[in-house]
């Protein structure tokens, strides 16, 4: 498998730029850890006052370029989504990651995240790409729980 199909330039750019890096506000962060490689992330989804829309995603963590770029892109692309939209969005991303190269993410819909499509061919790396997403879903659950 071609290395370039995994590491597109845009991924390496996000790895360096890290959109949303730094937890600056109070919220309900989720800590996720990948025991096989030691990667970890602390990520929180900040919701609008009515609890229905994603205002921003803040995160900190250490990990490989795939896990860090995935978190950065997630923060960039999910801003302003309703939670219903986000659920569909995350479901589609997860399905693509588990597709072993069968599903290529639509660039219109997924923006920079589409560049992570190649990860699904590298089974050992799927968890890297999913780390931030698991944290985001968990943080949404924690945040919603606090509103009830």
């Amino acid at each position: 498998m071609e290395l370039e199909s995994l590491y597109q330039q845009i991924i390496l750019d996000h790895y360096k730029r890290k959109v949303g890096y730094g937890i600056d506000h109070g919220g309900y962060p989720s800590h996720q850890y990948n025991p096989t490689c030691g990667d970890e992330i602390n990520l929180q989804v900040l919701l609008s006052a009515d609890g229905n829309t994603i205002e921003s995603i803040e995160w900190e963590g250490t990990g490989c370029s795939i896990s860090q770029a995935s978190a950065s892109m997630l923060a960039a692309e999910s801003k302003g989504m309703t939670l219903a939209e986000f659920e569909t969005f995350a479901g589609g991303f997860r399905e693509a990651m588990r597709s072993r190269g069968e599903i290529v993410l639509d660039e219109e819909e997924y923006g920079d995240l589409a560049s992570l499509s190649g990860v699904s061919k590298f089974v050992a790396r799927v968890k890297c790409a999913m780390l931030a997403w698991v944290a985001a879903e968990d943080s949404v659950t924690l945040t919603r729980g606090s509103l009830n």
Binding site: L3, L6, Y7, C37, D39, T62, G63, C64, S65, I66, F122, R125, C128
Partner: peptide, 8 residues
């Protein structure tokens, strides 16, 4: 990151 070095 080691994962990236290993993949390379």
């Amino acid at each position: 990151h080691p994962h990236d070095a290993g993949q390379f």
